[in-house]
Design a protein around this nucleic acid. Sequence first.
DNA 1: CGGTAAGCGAGACGGTACGTCTTGTCTTATT
DNA 2: AATAAGACAAGACGTACCGTCTCGCTTACCG
Lengths: 182, 182, 182, 182
Amino acid sequence: MLAAALALAGEQGVGGLSMDAIARRAGVSKETLYRWWPSKADVVLDALAERGRETIPLPDTGSLREDLRRFLRATVDSAEPGTVRLLHALAAASAADESTALQVRDRFLATRRSDLGQLLGRAVARGELASSHADLAIDLIYGCMWYRLIFRIGQLDYGWADSVADVIAPEPSARQGEGPTR
Amino acid sequence: MLAAALALAGEQGVGGLSMDAIARRAGVSKETLYRWWPSKADVVLDALAERGRETIPLPDTGSLREDLRRFLRATVDSAEPGTVRLLHALAAASAADESTALQVRDRFLATRRSDLGQLLGRAVARGELASSHADLAIDLIYGCMWYRLIFRIGQLDYGWADSVADVIAPEPSARQGEGPTR
Amino acid sequence: MLAAALALAGEQGVGGLSMDAIARRAGVSKETLYRWWPSKADVVLDALAERGRETIPLPDTGSLREDLRRFLRATVDSAEPGTVRLLHALAAASAADESTALQVRDRFLATRRSDLGQLLGRAVARGELASSHADLAIDLIYGCMWYRLIFRIGQLDYGWADSVADVIAPEPSARQGEGPTR
Amino acid sequence: MLAAALALAGEQGVGGLSMDAIARRAGVSKETLYRWWPSKADVVLDALAERGRETIPLPDTGSLREDLRRFLRATVDSAEPGTVRLLHALAAASAADESTALQVRDRFLATRRSDLGQLLGRAVARGELASSHADLAIDLIYGCMWYRLIFRIGQLDYGWADSVADVIAPEPSARQGEGPTR
DNA sequence: CGGTAAGCGAGACGGTACGTCTTGTCTTATT
DNA sequence: AATAAGACAAGACGTACCGTCTCGCTTACCG
């Protein structure tokens, strides 16, 4: 039933996604759909929550820089076209409606954020990162990712992953202003 | 005519925005609307482009940290409720449709990005910032902002502005891992 | 259980009468309702049969004219608003569906028809009425009544009752064309 | 457009008549249907009004009895199965809803009633009928007809037509109670 | 100066989706 | 075995919006 929603959302994007169509595809009556989910957003959200359970393994190499590189590269790897379309759906629904945004935040983003938070927390414990920066780093990193996704700023590839890791956790030898620019 | 679009978008959010309503409000026939803009997204986009011309003054204090603080605080100041709703509209439309996203990127985000790019460019010239980080910094900063806006992660206030400035341009005395934590 | 049907039919008219509502009101499951009556019409019909048992006393004054006046006046008296609504329901269901009509005819109208038939039969026996007219008179009288009810032609009052009696059983002195008009 | 309504009503009876179906059949959008008629009843009513314009010629033989026979026989002739189904629809809608009934009465029944009224009026002028009976006779005659139609009391055939004529306008020689029975 | 074209308001139209309602069947759990 | 509770497929309801279309009416330009 959620599968139908996912399939349709993946096929035609988010705009072309109607309750009628989901019901038709799922071989289910519209009434039943509405019995279980009050709105289209909730269906999509639940459908995504299902898929969203596949988590990204948390690396623990002892180095924040290395951990971040691996984590972000894995994140990049998980972004197949279908998934990206669903993320677009999520963003669109969240931007358009506050209560949807809150649900997305608490039911979908939260686990990702806490994953990254854990990774950064270890770095703070090791003294690699100012604790005052840890929380904001989560927003910066995921923010950057969503921003590029939503507005199609550019590809999310390994280069991007490494660059972000580099900004958040610069190479020990490197000092700001003395970078590879020289 | 675009004013009607803006007004309605500001009033009822993005979802409750129909071409019919815009036409009615503007005292204009739907036909005329369609003669000038091929789709709803384009109307909203043009309407926003109008408002979006109000730029934020670029500070130049000689210190990246200080420049960023002022720029971001000014950005925060400009975010009245009406404007925020319009940004939500923009994000929703961009997430939902690729070609809209491209237009938004090139006609709306671009000026903001180049503003910030200029500010960061000066810092690179002064040796305060690795040039390799400058471009990414734009994504990180604006990404963080949009991310928090779209998913209602938290307020965009002066505290946030200063924190971001602090991460991108740390206090000279501070060294990572030697933050105020210890 | 039938009481619930009657109550609801009386309250909101016939249109706003659903099996769901009857079941809910009766504190009974829909399944049970369907176990006992195959369709909504049957429920209403049975409910009416209950009420319909209250018969109108047959007068026997020895004069057709007087008998008719009394019988029709009593009929008029029995038509309270709730009852009228139920009669409307009956007519609507009968008009819409043949098998319902047959049931209504045989289970509801029949007793009324035979009552009136008895009254007219006595008049035939007394030589007051041509036997060939007796059967048709039933249709004329009841037809007139239903016609006025269904199409809201006018009130069913004592005036109407007396007029009908007058047409079916004219005053002995009166000759057609020499009526009270003169 | 009304044709579709008529066709469907004629095919499946009144119950199986939905706005959706009419729109589909007429190759028209539901919106358009609702733009022109506020409710299903109004569509059917208008559709019937179209057909209802075919009037029955008013005979004028100089004898009420003969006029009535001819008029009622012609009425009987006009009752093909399709028409009868539509009359059933009319009756059902009228019984179920007061405002519909009023419209039916004023827009559909009225012309028939005035036709018959004219016929009877001539008889009154000739002294064949008490003027006080004329109005009621309309109700009796049409009432009888509808009554038999709605509740499927019996066929409407020439026999019925002649009998009704006989009751309303008895043979001059005949005296009540001295009918052909004896 | 008068004829013709372009732009406009108004709004009807075919479609599609919405979210609600009712129908009649079915299943589950209780009694 | 009968029941209440209520899920379910089907599909109609009346409304909203989309994007296209056809009307007249008004300008304003050009012959």
